[in-house]
Amino acid sequence: MAIPVTPGRRPGRAWPRWADTAVGVGILAVLLFPIYWMINVSLQPGGSAVGTPWLPVHLSFHGYSTALSQQGRNLLTSLVVALGSVAFCLVIATPAAYVLAQFRLRFAGAILFGVLISQMIPGIVIANALYTAYTDAGLLNSVPGLILADSTAGIPFAILIVRAFMTSIPQSVIEAGRVDGAGHLRTFVSIVLPMSRNALITAALFSFLFAWADFLFALTLTTTADVRPVTLGLYTYIGTYVSDWSSVMATAVLASIPAIVLLVVAQRYVAAGTTAGAVK
């Protein structure tokens, strides 16, 4: 490792903090170059991919106007689905994580192992099976259907992360709550959840990202334009005759904005270190 491990520099060294910032910006510039390229293409007038200049000299916003007029609704759908998935993941995963963390259960090990194994199943296998099940259940082309499917990545992940955090909540705190006469549900809601705030935010953030980026389920489980997440909306631009890359990239840029805002806001709470005991 080239970078020495020092949390906070000791005073007296000639290495000002802004130099670290400069290094950080440099790293960012390299890693985000593809993102820059995306923005660059989105502002080019031609929409062709060959020999794109390094800078968008002839600014054109036609990609953005197309994207806004045609993908606005899809962006909203994506947002609803992703937020719905976050809520669903937390509602399903946290109670389970709590029980798995705080109580000795004979089958807890088996459940955790099952959760881990679930991560190994390729998405297509799930999507294939869901299609038929959804046809029978009338869940095709529905927001709830997409929320359920998009949570396949979030729920196992949330169970692992939140459980790992909750194991560190002292038993005595929970017992004290119980002695005060609170029921299981109230103990859980008013004591355990507030203590796990950071773990919950982490789980929520990841669930959001998983659902936001989903393309497979969107493609599989929707057949009409009524319910169409923006990932699928993007795909419709890349078609038979015209591949309008400016619009594709403009949509991608617009689609990233809500997610980036959320990221920046949530970042300070991220307590991913709680995964320490997630897989043991």
Binding site: I27, L28, L31, L32, P34, I35, M38, L209, W212, A213, F215, V230, T231, L234, A252, A255, S256, A259, I260, L263, V264, Q267
Partner: peptide, 10 residues
Amino acid sequence: SLLLIPWLIP
């Protein structure tokens, strides 16, 4: 936070 962007791009 910005370093997480690659993940957000479809």
